Computed example of a mutant assay.
Amino acid sequence: MDTKKVWLVTGASKGLGLTLVKKLLDNGYKVAATSRNIESLKNAVNYSGSDFLPLQVDLINEQSIEKAIANSIEKFKKIDVVVNNAGYGQAGTLEELSDAEARENFDVNVFGALNVIRKVMPHFREQNSGHIFNIASVAGFIGNFPSFGVYCATKFAVVGLTEALSAEAKPFNITATVVYPGYFRTNFLDEGSLMLPKKPIDIYTEARAIEELHTSQIRGNQTGDPEKAADVLIELTKQENLPLHLFLGSDAYLYANQKMETIESEMTAHKTLATSTDY
C-alpha cells in the first residue's frame, strides 16, 4: 500500500519550489506543481513519469486555483501537503514604491497564498487531515533594513495569517507551518525574481547600497543550500508534531535571536511606564 503523501507546490519552476519538487519526485512522492508558465515548469522539472502533474495557475485568480486543486485531486485522489512557495522580492523604500508596485507584491506574496488556503481547506476538512507550509522569510520577522519594507510587510502578513490558520484548522486535524528561510542559494536575487523600484529617489543612498549588496555580493554567495532546505521540509512531514514556526538556516537563527534580544531589552527598559496604563 502506497502511504506516501501527495504534495501541491506553488511557484515550482525555480528556486526552492523547483528544488523541492525534484527532490520529492526522486523520492517517490506524487507531486502537483504550479507555475504561471507550464512549459517553463515542465522543462525545469524534466520529469515524464505519472507521479508529476504540472499545472498552469494564476495565483491571484481563484477560479484558476480551484481548477488546479480539483485536477490534482482527480489525478492523485487526495492532497496531503500544500507548500505556498510562490512569491518574489520587491525592493524600494516606502516613499519610492508606487501603489501598484506595493499592491502587486501583496497580491502574489499574500493573497496568492490566501487563495490557495481558501480553496484547499474544504478538501482538508473533508479528509480530516492536511498540512500547509507557508514560505515566508526571515524578513517576515525582522524588517529593520532600508529598501525592503513592502516585501517585509508581505512576509509579516504571511506569518500572521499562518498563526491564525493554525488555530482555526486545529479542530479539523489540519496543521500549518510558517517557514522563515534566511539566504539560500537560489535565483531569488536574480533579475525577474527581485524587482527594483521603477522610480528611485536619488537621496535614498543607503537603500541603493542595500540593493547593490544583495544583487552583486550576496547573490551567488548565500549561506543556505536549497537541497538541504527541501530535505528539512520532507523530513518534517514524517514527524508527528510539526512546528508552527520554522526558522530555516543558521543566518535566520542569528537574525531572529538578535530581534528577540532587542525586543526583550526594550520591553524591560520601558516596562514600568508601558504597563502603567491599566485601570
Rank of each mutant, 00 (worst) to 15 (best):
A32V: 07
D58R: 00
S40I: 02
Q63L: 09
Q63D: 14
K42G: 01
A91D: 04
D26Q: 13
P54D: 01
Q90S: 10
E95Q: 15
V81F: 05
I60T: 10
A32P: 05
E62L: 13
N43F: 12
A86R: 00
Y29H: 11
N46V: 13
N85H: 08
V31L: 02
A86N: 06
S50H: 13
I73V: 13
D26V: 10
D51I: 11
T34S: 05
I65A: 04
I73S: 08
A68V: 00
D26C: 10
S64L: 03
K67A: 10
I69Q: 03
K30S: 03
D51K: 06
N61G: 12
K77A: 14
V57Q: 00
A68Y: 03
N85I: 09
E39Y: 09
Y88H: 09
N85F: 01
N37G: 03
K77V: 15
K30I: 05
E62I: 09
N43G: 14
I79Y: 03
I79R: 00
Q56C: 08
G49V: 09
A32S: 08
S35A: 11
I60L: 10
L59S: 03
A70C: 13
A33G: 05
A68S: 11
I69A: 05
V45K: 05
N46G: 14
K67E: 09
E74P: 05
N37C: 06
K78Q: 12
A68L: 08
A91Q: 02
G92R: 02
G49R: 09
K42E: 04
G49M: 09
I73P: 07
I79K: 01
D99P: 10
S50A: 14
S64N: 13
E66G: 08
I65H: 00
